[in-house]
Design a protein around this nucleic acid. Structure first.
Lengths: 226, 226
DNA sequence: GCCTTCATGAACTACGTGTGAACCAGGCGG
DNA sequence: CCGCCTGGTTCACACGTAGTTCATGAAGGC
């Protein structure tokens, strides 16, 4: 079995103990460069990121692993229970989490379940919202069955919006989440991309992206009629 | 939000406490027949099966929920840490698990992540006061289930008032807290926004915002019923 | 009954967004 | 190596909506 990537280096003793006890091979790394350099030929089997000592570094590592061409999965985050709140805005950065202090056997069980889950491909490679279909594997989009010719940024923006239907995002949130965390550019850039997206969605579906005045943009109808 | 199906009936106190604390509606059931009979029109939002008291019944419930035409998802299993081993042959019966004794916040975080994973997004953050609902994520408001078309300032004002029901605010307090600390404008601005809000709330609910003469405005009934 | 306070309607102003087009940067082919 | 082409960013302007102010009348308190 390929080794797991573990952050940080050295890992907390409890983590090392649990991993060796469960029989999983692993290699620790602290920087994303290290992670790239140490990566086995066939790729990591998964990652186990402990954010206890260095939350910033852990978050950076998660982002790096998920932003690659082939996002690394599964990614298990280990976090102290008092920092549970920090997970909320980062749902997309991990597949499961495990609390410190570790319960005997829990880490092993979670890894097992994660491998089972990801092995069966429960992760959808399609995003569908009404008439819109995004194929995450082929980077193609279609609406009403008609293919859309989207540029890279248009696709990324639409994908991000479509994965959070109903939710309003400010321009700044979109710039940081779609363009990149340290991007600094004019907020009007978002406007222009939204305009092009609306233009490429046919006239009838342009309303899929709504502007919320003084706030930002929202994709799709919010579902709270229900 | 549709309620969660919870097993067994009655659930362990810790479970009830965690669920109500997190704000998730739920209905307990002990048999699969009950689960079918109690199921809401739009289906369960998910299931939370506690196998502590009755492992057999819990496993049966999981199988039943997963074998339906439309398998119920997500399904969170709550299990005592000493019984971790019993999970192994049943990977397909649950989407995530949570150990007893419960860590504060863990159940809520797991539910949130589960809902995010299964594509339903996170539980929307709502402010509810009687017939009024404010959705903080989608910037939408509704009363009696009917959506309200509020402008940005109207929404902000209503949100601020609704988060402090019963409390009286002077116009100056509202200007500083809603409009901004360094805002300097006429205090009558508040009046106008209150008027528009009352107009958009239907006639019957206009009294949700009361004027306290010579003082300011108050949202909702004062605690003393008067 | 007078004075203060608030509601109402309408006019004014300003900000936010849509839109068209120009400007760059990188990639590819001639 | 140069120039075109595509895609991303920025700019300028116009328009509409939303926020603010004002004038007036009604209501409440002393």
């Amino acid at each position: 079995m390929e080794p797991l990537l573990v952050f940080p280096d050295p890992p907390p003793p409890a983590l090392t103990h649990a991993l060796t006890g469960a029989g999983y091979p692993f290699r620790p790394a602290t920087t994303s460069d290290e992670a790239t350099r140490l990566e086995p030929e066939d790729g990591w089997a998964g990652a186990l990121i402990c954010s206890d000592d260095d939350p910033e570094g852990a978050a950076a590592m998660c982002r790096h692993l998920r932003k690659r061409d082939i996002p690394l999965e599964p990614l298990l985050l280990v976090v102290r229970s008092s920092h549970l709140g920090s997970l909320e805005p980062r749902e997309d950065l991990f597949d499961d989490f495990c609390l410190l202090p570790l319960q005997p056997g829990e880490l092993e069980a979670r890894l097992k379940h994660l491998f089972w889950r990801t092995g069966r491909g429960t992760r959808p490679e399609l995003i569908e919202y009404g008439p819109l279909i995004l194929n995450l594997e082929t980077y193609q989009a279609a609406i009403d069955g008609r293919p859309l010719d989207l540029t890279y940024m248009e696709y990324e923006l639409l994908r991000f919006l479509a994965t959070h239907p109903g939710k309003v995002f400010t321009r700044e949130m979109l710039l940081s989440r779609v363009w990149g965390y340290e991007y600094y550019g004019g907020a009007r850039t978002v406007d222009v991309h939204v305009r092009r997206l609306r233009a490429k969605l046919s006239e009838e579906h342009a309303a899929l992206i709504q502007t919320v005045r003084s706030v930002g943009y929202r994709f799709g109808q919010s579902r709270w009629g229900l």
